[in-house]
Simulated assay, not measured.
Amino acid sequence: MNDLLSELSTAADSEKGDNGRVSIVGGSIEYPGPPALSGLAALRTGTDVARILTSERAVDTVAGFSPNLLAGRFTGDVLTADSVSKALTLAEWSDAVVIGPGLENPHPDAIREIVDGIDVPLVIDATAIGAALDADVGTAVVTPDAAEVDAIEDEYGSLDDFARETEVVVVSKGAEDEIIDGEQRWTNDVGSPAMTVAGTGDTLAGIVGSLLGQGLRPAKAARLGPWIAGRAGVLAADEYGTGIVATDVIERIPRAIREGR
């Protein structure tokens, strides 16, 4: 991964914003943590600014995770068409967008309108994936778990066909991550069994979003992201054993990157 890590900026004269601005559309009253984890992971990967658009009832909880996160609210508790313009305005500010972590029952039409209207690199995760299958996903990175893989395969037949027909890059999360861009496949076996803990998928989405915002092409971000998450997970497990939590992984992202260069 040294060649991919070498593409990340180490410029001493960087100014705020030069290393990417990432926004996350996600969260709900039931699941306020996921977008915060994605935002923190993006920051630890090198992003300069992370902003979150979340549910009215979750925004205070999301903002309370860290003073380093900027949190705003969409209309109501569920993402609907009323909030599409807010999401697209945020996307215009962003160098990359992550949509999906912690969204509960988002309106499919709202997801499709947002995905169709975003012109910057995009990560589609969690509950946003199902609705986005009918949108113009372009060159997005899609990060499904096992259940979401089933939904994709029901519609497209296989992950390879999905990636080929839509031009997305797929990161299929598992004990071994599979990365598929329609022409090639890669695997990532760096990680720890302890990373089955909740929140590591949200962490991965934030890392990939950060890499996209820093200028990596989707296939490169999709290959490097799981490695960074996996290596950070190994470092966390070395210290805590099987009792790690997602924030332990996030805090070790900088070391994983530094030692991998």
Score class of each variant (00 low, 15 high):
A132T: 08
V168G: 01
S158V: 10
G117Y: 10
E167Y: 02
T139W: 00
L90Y: 03
D145I: 06
P101Q: 08
D136H: 11
I152F: 05
A132D: 10
R73A: 15
D161S: 13
L88E: 03
D154P: 03
D136W: 04
S172D: 14
F162D: 00
S83F: 06
D109A: 12
P144M: 13
S66K: 05
T166H: 04
D145T: 13
V98N: 00
P106W: 13
D177Q: 10
D177L: 04
G72V: 09
S85E: 15
A87L: 08
D119G: 12
R112G: 04
I99R: 00
N105G: 11
D145W: 09
V170I: 13
A63N: 12
V149I: 15
D95V: 00
A140R: 01
G174T: 07
G102K: 11
V98G: 01
S94M: 01
V98L: 03
D161R: 13
T127E: 13
V115C: 06
V141C: 02
V78I: 15
A96Y: 00
L79V: 12
D134W: 07
P121A: 02
V78S: 11
I114W: 06
T127W: 01
V170W: 10
I129N: 02
S172K: 14
V141N: 01
F162M: 04
G72K: 12
R73N: 12
A96F: 00
E92V: 14
